[in-house]
């Protein structure tokens, strides 16, 4: 008897090839920087939430929705600021926040339930350099644990009277940020070190060609799914440009 393991229900939604996921991540991160239009941004936001929903990641979709929603509301409010200089400065900040956050949101979307070994195998098939593959693998392996680590840090900050709350963030923004980030970096360094040691003893560094337990192959389905999203993003861009020209 072989050991063909039955595909679980959720796998249907995670089945998009990791390479395609990476392409979508790059697509969304760059697309929103190309256009300055808020309408295009809104369209991309909706698409990203859609990507979460398609994979049944309800919680992720909800959080992403709230994040994006608050950005848009902020942008709207900034529009009412009478002082031109302040308006421009804040507008610029929100412009970058709105767009850089997409990188993290999509990174999270990709990292959720990502099978690292499939990812490594896929990148190997594409003849990526080994150093790049290992780095990417460590990053995506570590991402899902960050929120757990951060929760412990937040808890201690609360007990030590330096809590990550509105008052402290406004009054001592730099210090509070430092307190939150320093332990996280120290932990990350430690974990990365241990992870690397473990991976070395298990031969991740070997020159032999890696085999794969799961069959990794790009299917028509993968191209179609990615294609639809790419067309949707490009479509939003084109429609916006046409409307803009026609309107003026």
């Amino acid at each position: 008897m072989g050991i063909e393991i039955e595909t679980k229900q959720e796998d249907i939604y995670t089945a998009l090839d990791p390479r395609m996921k990476l392409i979508l991540l790059i697509l969304f991160t760059t697309a929103t920087y190309i256009s300055r239009s808020t309408w295009v941004l809104l369209w991309d936001y909706l698409l990203i939430i859609g990507l979460y929903l398609v994979r049944h990641l309800w919680k992720g979709a909800w959080k992403t929705g709230i994040l994006f929603g608050s950005f848009l509301v902020l942008e709207l409010l900034i529009g009412y600021i009478p002082h031109e200089g302040t308006k421009a400065a804040l507008g610029l900040i929100i412009f970058f926040l709105e767009r850089t956050s997409i990188f993290f949101v999509m990174g999270n979307w990709m990292a959720t339930k990502l099978r690292i070994s499939d990812f490594v195998a896929a990148l190997q098939n594409m003849h990526f350099p080994k150093g790049v593959i290992i780095t990417l693998a460590v990053v995506f392996r570590y991402l899902p644990t960050v929120s757990d680590e951060f929760r412990s840090i937040k808890n201690t900050m609360k007990l030590r009277g330096i809590g990550l709350n509105f008052k402290n963030i406004i009054l001592h923004p730099i210090q509070t940020g430092e307190y939150a980030i320093v332990p996280l970096i120290i932990r990350s360094m430690k974990i990365a070190d241990e992870l690397a040691a473990s991976a070395m003893t298990r031969g991740l560094d070997l020159e032999t060609k890696r085999t794969s337990y799961r069959k990794i192959r790009l299917r028509v389905k993968d191209f179609m799914a990615a294609g639809i999203v790419i067309i949707a993003v490009a479509g939003g861009f084109v429609v916006d440009t046409i409307l803009r020209k026609g309107g003026v």
Binding site: L114, I116, R141
Partner: peptide, 21 residues
């Protein structure tokens, strides 16, 4: 927590064998 490279158990068990080829 810090000796696993994969995020699912099956891949984790297979990991060393895959590396050896």
């Amino acid at each position: 927590r810090s000796q696993f490279f994969a995020t699912d158990t099956t891949a984790e068990i297979a990991f060393s064998c895959e590396n050896v080829g």
